[in-house]
Design a binder for these strands. Structure first.
Lengths: 217, 217
DNA sequence: ACCCAGGCGTACCGTACGGTACGGTTCTGC
DNA sequence: GCAGAACCGTACCGTACGGTACGCCTGGGT
């Protein structure tokens, strides 16, 4: 009985067949919300329930594997931190904002976050940890050094890079994520997508207005 | 059979006994996460399941009534918008930030939001709408006129009060809410509470830095 | 040609829970 | 005091779903 030892750090490897199963599970999650039953996954993936239990242990294991596998797929493009003039820094920050917003409003992200929140409502934080780790925290890990490089180059000013990052997050995400998670009908994904670019520009402008060293900004 | 017609607008009135039942339901929600079973509520409230169904129709009705009733309880203190000098405006905005943050990090808010998100994962948005309506939207409705009054008094500058409000929301909430919803262990409620005042000050400073008409701010 | 591990499909079991029925009890109006 | 309504407690039903068992098939190794 192969029960994957899934942790936040270890990257689990799945066979193509297993990935097909996980894809089916994710599709069901996206379609049916939490209507993820073992029977449904088995039928969708054309496999037997017994196989599911052999591979993933139990329902929670399947859920965890699905979230883990999908969340890890979110690999945002690296930005070069070689050149550090003002223009390049701005472009980098802007790109981070775009990446963050694009991911967060995606249907898959919404589904994974909803699943993790639901999970967290049952005294289980494993899914939440995975989602956090692969979403906001991944962005943070990559943005922080850039911010600090910007500070070293006297292009940015802040005391705590942690605070700077979190303000950046707030400026970019605002109330979009929570509203999407809550199913706000007045905020269609299409509408949000159309405004991404403008929102990214605004957020970046505001971030530099707050943390840019150049006061004439 | 009395099935309350609950809508976003209509305020439902509950008898004291019914409120005791709703309190029991909320307590169970907070304690057990989503472990809200009709049997558990009946036992906790010392009432019969039949009564629950008579009063609330079905499980969803009970859930809706609980969220509705509890969310409507969040009545934040009104701020006076009579005097509109810079100092009073700043105090008002600051108070809004404090109210918003205090509510959002509360255990009840977390529970209600989690419940609504879970609900939204099942193609039902009624709870989400209620939570949004009584949380962020309630703040927005009250903050917007103040912002606009501030603009009229040439103390603030912005094109869209909607955008200004949403930026305010982002600056105040940042990633706190989503992390709490996901059960982030590195963010204890106690820790957050201790930093409320500092965060409120920072967010208010930043808001005025972005939207204040006084450039020497 | 044969074996057998791995996997499919399905039937099955136990349980939890939403919802209903009903007898007994307390409260209320007359 | 009495009739009726409201309500409590509990037993009960049906179903959905997590988890298991088992028979059959297939494909690769010898």
């Amino acid at each position: 009985m192969r029960v994957p030892m899934i942790s936040k750090i270890e990257e689990e490897v799945f066979t193509p067949r297993q990935q097909a199963v996980l894809t089916a599970a994710l599709d069901l999650l996206v379609e049916n919300g939490d209507g993820l039953t073992m029977t449904a996954v088995a039928r969708r993936a054309s496999c037997s329930k017994e196989t599911l239990y052999k591979w993933f242990g139990d329902r929670d294991g399947l859920l965890t594997a699905t979230v883990q596998w999908q969340a890890a797929k979110v690999r945002m493009p690296q930005v070069n931190r070689s050149s550090l003039n003002a223009k390049a820094l701005r472009a980098s920050v802007e790109q981070f904002a775009r990446d963050l917003l694009t991911v967060l409003i995606g249907e898959i992200s919404i589904t994974l976050n909803r699943t993790a929140v639901t999970h967290a409502a049952q005294e289980k934080d494993s899914l939440g940890a995975i989602v956090l780790e692969n979403g906001p925290m991944a962005i943070r890990r990559r943005l922080k050094p850039i911010l600090e490089a910007g500070r070293d180059a006297r292009l940015l000013r802040f005391d705590s890079s942690e605070d700077a990052y979190r303000t950046f997050f707030g400026l970019v995400v605002r109330d979009v994520q929570i509203r999407l998670l809550l199913g706000d009908k007045t905020l269609t994904q299409i509408n949000v997508e159309a405004n991404i670019e403008a929102d990214v520009q605004t957020a970046t402008d505001q971030f530099f207005a707050l943390y840019g060293a150049d006061k004439t900004q």
